[in-house]
């Protein structure tokens, strides 16, 4: 069912785990309907320098999680926001049609982690200005 590239990504996933005190984190999905993915990011000067994932899901979900983290490392957050599940699937040289939905998870988790990063950054700025005024 899966091609060799997907099988390899599933059998030897990269970037498994979580980054302590991440600059951005995102968890998407829901166990009742299927897969859950959590991504943590280390971001320096708006550039992703490290990414780790944890995934509860099928082989396609695990393979796309691994590949997506590999792809975003080195990207700026703006570039990472442009990353689509279609690109991740392309990188894996395709998924069975009924498994395409599993790849959406990685895209969503990354978007959510970046949103979290931006929200945190804004809070920090607010905090700082607050301190400035005091």
């Amino acid at each position: 069912m899966y091609n060799q590239k997907v099988l390899d990504a599933f059998a030897h996933p990269q970037n498994v785990g979580e980054i302590e005190n991440p600059d951005g984190e995102g968890t998407v999905g829901n166990a009742t309907c299927g897969d859950i993915m959590r991504i943590t990011l280390r971001i320096v000067d708006d550039r992703i320098v490290d990414a780790k994932f944890q995934t509860f899901g099928c082989a396609a979900a695990i393979a796309t999680s691994s590949t997506a983290t590999q792809m975003v490392i080195g990207m700026t957050v703006d570039e990472a926001l442009q990353l689509t599940n279609a690109r991740v699937v392309e990188e894996l040289e395709g998924l069975p049609p009924q498994k395409i939905h599993c790849s959406v998870l990685a895209e969503e988790a990354i978007k959510k982690a970046i949103e979290d990063y931006r929200a945190k950054k804004e809070n920090k700025t607010v905090d700082k200005s607050h301190i400035d005024y005091v």
């Binding site: 968890t27 829901n30 859950i36 959590r38 995934t55 509860f56 695990i62």
Partner: peptide
């Protein structure tokens, strides 16, 4: 399980889905 966020939760983590 090492890969699973649910197992991590079981071990005492917390976060929102």
């Amino acid at each position: 399980r090492e890969m699973s966020p649910l197992f991590d939760l079981k071990k005492g983590g917390t976060y929102n889905v």
